[in-house]
């Protein structure tokens, strides 16, 4: 049996091997993804984002436990940063979740950003596809510890949870644009700290001041303590409510369509770019064009316009 068939049967090792192909961007990865594609689109995807040290991994660990109690298969994709200097990384999110690693119903995958900005790695969406195809019901995606502007997760997840902690900043931080706008659920972790209620109030105030969301969803604020296991029931309830909202409002469907558009356009962009570059390098004009542009004999804008016209002519001939 080939790796793809094994993945469809839920085999961990085969899934891990295909994810590795995907991460290393090898040609075999495309072949595997092609064959897995018909079996994707079923999983419920939860994004977990927030600043470093907010307790994202600990929270994911608790949520895994809850979903498993309900008999659901769970996938976790945890992203940690790659060093901009060495290209290496230390992936340590598993530390908080290791107790689940021997559970056959759980699959935990660490990914390094490998230079990708926005809080996720380039391979994240394809790794999710593999987990989806192997039959995971719920997939949680933990972003790198983020600041204010890493909002890629919103395009990947059905429900985005922002995990914050008391004492990170004043109420002005809470009204800035960016990450606070994308949360479907706010989680104030370390809720056993005395300042936690103040953080909850500041977030409430921020939400009161903001214009209602286009989709009509009002993000709840849940106070939890991942270490003490408090507030998880309320959080699970909030997740359930948001999922129901997505389903009844048709957004579950439309998010999937948005993702198809995104995947298609990204693939198309990459492929057309690679084809064009390969062609220019193949016929030796690449170096010449670059030096002509460098010497100001040509400008890059006209060169690209002329090249794209040529592509159009060729495709018409086809």
């Amino acid at each position: 049996m080939g790796l793809v068939d094994q993945v469809l049967k839920g085999d961990k090792k085969a899934a891990a091997r295909i994810m590795r192909l995907v991460e290393d961007d090898l040609p075999e990865a495309r072949e595997a993804l092609k064959r897995l594609y018909p079996y994707t689109g079923r999983a419920y995807i939860i994004g977990v984002t927030g600043p470093p040290g907010a307790g994202k991994s600990s929270l994911v660990d608790l949520l895994v436990e809850w979903f498993r109690k309900r008999g659901e298969g769970v996938g976790v994709v945890a992203v940690d940063p790659t060093s901009p200097f060495s290209g290496g990384a230390i992936l340590g999110d598993r530390i908080r979740m290791q107790r689940h690693s021997t559970d056959p119903g759980v699959f935990i995958k660490s990914l390094a950003t490998r230079g990708h900005l926005g809080g996720l790695s380039k391979a994240t969406d394809d790794v999710i596809q593999v987990m989806d195809a192997m039959g995971k019901d719920v997939i949680m995606v933990e972003t790198v510890g983020v600041g204010q502007d890493e909002v890629d997760i919103v395009k990947t997840a059905d429900t985005t949870m922002l995990v914050t902690v008391p004492g990170l900043g004043d109420d002005i931080q809470a009204i800035k644009a960016g990450i606070l706008e994308i949360a479907d659920i706010f989680v104030v972790n370390k809720g056993d700290k005395p300042e936690a209620d103040k953080t909850v109030r500041e977030l409430e105030m921020m939400l009161d001041m903001s214009t209602p969301r286009e989709d009509g969803w009002k993000p709840p604020i849940i106070k939890v303590s991942a270490v003490k296991g408090e507030g998880i029931e309320e959080l699970m309830e909030a997740l359930k409510t948001h999922r129901k909202f997505l389903e009844t409002s048709g957004r579950f469907e439309s998010y999937r369509k948005d993702r198809v558009v995104c995947t298609f356009e990204n693939l198309l962009r990459d492929k057309l770019f690679q084809t064009a570059i390969a062609k220019l390098k193949g016929n030796g004009s690449y170096e010449r064009l670059i030096s002509e542009i460098f010497n100001k004999r040509k400008d890059p804008y006209s060169v690209v316009e002329r090249l794209s016209c040529q592509c159009e002519l060729e495709s018409k001939r086809e």
Binding site: G87, G88, A89, I90, L91, G92, R94, I95, Q98
Partner: peptide
């Protein structure tokens, strides 16, 4: 040290 030499290291605690 492995990280600083370009390896991806998974540390499980």
């Amino acid at each position: 040290a492995l990280r600083d030499s370009g390896f991806e290291v998974i540390y499980t605690g």
